[in-house]
């Protein structure tokens, strides 16, 4: 079932196009979004997070048109978002911070306390729930950010560089969480860490210079690479091969 549908998407900053004629369909499951720096990954995430209005094109989230204010509000209620640069109020405790976002996401008041505790537990911060945000380490802050993103059990979860700052053990736990979340929601993870994609994603999309140059399963991306391609792992070789092919085709 397709729950995110993008057609002819164009986004530009001034006269510089960042996304050009982008087409993408996403269904339930964990999707990896790969691409070099400046490819347009974060811009795409911001469009899907409804904080950036596209110049052109159609975006449907969870079956709702974003151009319709009522549809936008309903879509936002089912959205979870962790931006690349995650800010926080340092004096809030983890629980208060997550609760604040539960309120902003218009969750039913009676469901909030339980949902907050559950979200904090899922990211493994329950023992630090009453600590102030300013006392958390970088990795813990990232996990608190994920907790606020998942507190409303979103149907569309957008995570921009979620594993930045997590140690290997936390990354393993986080991948397990991703797989769990992807059972009944669309989870889009933008990352540079291709091993996360292999480990956690059912599908992967690769963006380069504002265009979608690959979409498929991780094993298909791996298969695109050859022994002579640059990269230390099969998926890195596949990634490099697809990029090289797309750039040669564009010439």
């Amino acid at each position: 079932m397709t729950t995110v549908s993008i057609h002819g998407l164009r986004v530009s900053y001034g006269s510089r196009p960042v996304l050009e004629e982008l087409e993408l369909e996403l269904g339930v499951g964990v999707h990896g979004l790969l691409g070099p720096n400046g490819a347009g990954k974060t811009t795409l995430m911001r469009v899907l997070a409804t904080v950036l209005r596209p110049d052109r094109g159609e975006v449907r989230l969870l079956g709702r048109q974003l151009s319709d204010p009522a549809g936008l509000r309903l879509a936002r209620r089912q959205l979870g978002y962790l931006p690349q640069s995650f800010g926080f109020y340092p004096r809030f405790t983890v629980r208060e911070f997550v609760e604040y976002f539960a309120w902003l996401k218009e969750m039913p008041p009676e469901a909030i306390p339980l949902a907050v505790d559950r979200a904090i537990e899922r990211v493994g911060l329950l023992d630090r729930a009453d600590d102030r945000m300013k006392h958390l380490s970088g990795g813990m802050l990232r996990r608190a950010g994920i907790a606020q993103a998942i507190v409303n059990d979103p149907k569309l979860l957008l995570l921009d560089e979620p594993t930045a700052g997590l140690d290997p053990e936390q990354r393993v736990e986080f991948r397990a969480l991703l797989r769990q979340l992807g059972l009944d929601a669309v989870v889009l993870v933008s990352t540079h860490l291709v091993e996360d994609v292999v480990a956690a994603c059912a599908r992967v999309s690769l963006v380069d210079k504002g265009r979608l140059v690959f979409t498929g399963r991780p094993d298909e991306l791996i298969a695109a690479g050859a022994a002579g391609d640059s990269g230390d792992s099969p998926i890195e070789r596949g990634y490099a091969a697809v990029l090289r092919g797309a750039r040669e085709a564009a010439r």
Binding site: R46, A49, T50, V51, L72, R73, L74, R76, R77, L79, Y81, P83, S85, F86, G87, F88, Y89, P90, F101, W103, L104, K105, E106, Q148
Partner: peptide, 22 residues
């Protein structure tokens, strides 16, 4: 000013609650 100082504007904008509430 804290919302922008703390870089939370984007995250808050992505939520459905009308902006005047917070």
């Amino acid at each position: 000013g804290r919302e922008r100082r703390r870089d939370l504007g984007e995250l808050i904008t992505s939520t459905p609650r009308p902006g005047w509430h917070p």
